[in-house]
Amino acid sequence: MTLETIINKDIASLEKESPAVVDYLKQYGLQFHNKEQTLGTHLQLLTEETLEDMGIDHKQLLINLEGFIRQQEGSTIGEKYNVKSITLIGGHDKNGTPENITITLHAGTITSIVGPTGSGKSRLLGDIEWMAQADTPTGRKILVNGDVPDVELRFSLEHKLVAQLSQNMNFVIDATAEEFITMHAESRMVQNTKKIVADIIRQANLLAGEGFDGDTPLTSLSGGQSRALMIADTAFLSTSPVVLIDEIENAGIDQKNALQLLVKKEKIVLMATHDPILALMAEQRLVIKNGGIHKIITTSEQEKLNLEELERIDNKILSLRNRLRNGEIIDNIE
């Protein structure tokens, strides 16, 4: 569907065939009384005064309408931009020392990022998000699927590379979980909204310690429930192939399965964390120091074995917590 075909249709058939377009135009305060007129004629006949009241001019209205049509199509056609890998070609650190590395992050893998605050973790993320081409302070370059990406995609919503999830993020809108996820699904133009929304809420319930249903207002979800819903939503609906998880707390959410879900959905997972259990769940970790990638460590067999031990310790602490909560006395810790 092009702008031209839409413009040449009469209002009556548009209302039947593309109600979304008609609704979109009504948002600007347009009223269609003569249904036989083509949309083009209708727009041509708008007076200066009406346009002024609408707060838009003729040219911009057509540009927006075309954008809207493309938005609608872009997503029904499906993923035009299937990101299988992101390659990072090293630049230099704050002192100008070259990083001398090239790393490729593949879909469905987890990489953790470690390093003190202010060491350059955000800049690294920024470089990926911006698809840097040696045009940021680090001099790094980013390839998508092995190729230099079109830098104009930096400003395209459908091609935002990074989705973020962090401690401080909360749901702020006044809607129930189901209403909002539906809104998100609609903005993605997914085919089967109902099913996806149900899947997301079910997944979120699997990840959250305590269950909740679709009618729960977003703002009354607990920390763990919100986090679980955010992860499930990102896994199913986010356009971004890279998911950054930033220092997420472990209360009230099954982190292992949360990560697994993202991996299953072919996300490239980056995790800024100093929690040893999370860090060792990754295949590799990037050590950031003084604005540069200082080292890449592949999680060793020994580390993976240690992970089991760590999980045992963690479970022990967890059970101590539960005992405390239940009013028990912690006279022994076995």
Binding site: L157, N168, M230
Partner: peptide, 20 residues
């Protein structure tokens, strides 16, 4: 930094509709 990824995506989608 303080809203969910999902809200950001829906918000940006609507901004796109207001200015293509």
């Amino acid at each position: 930094d303080i809203v969910s990824q999902a809200e950001r995506e829906v918000f940006a989608f609507r901004v796109r509709q207001a200015n293509a």
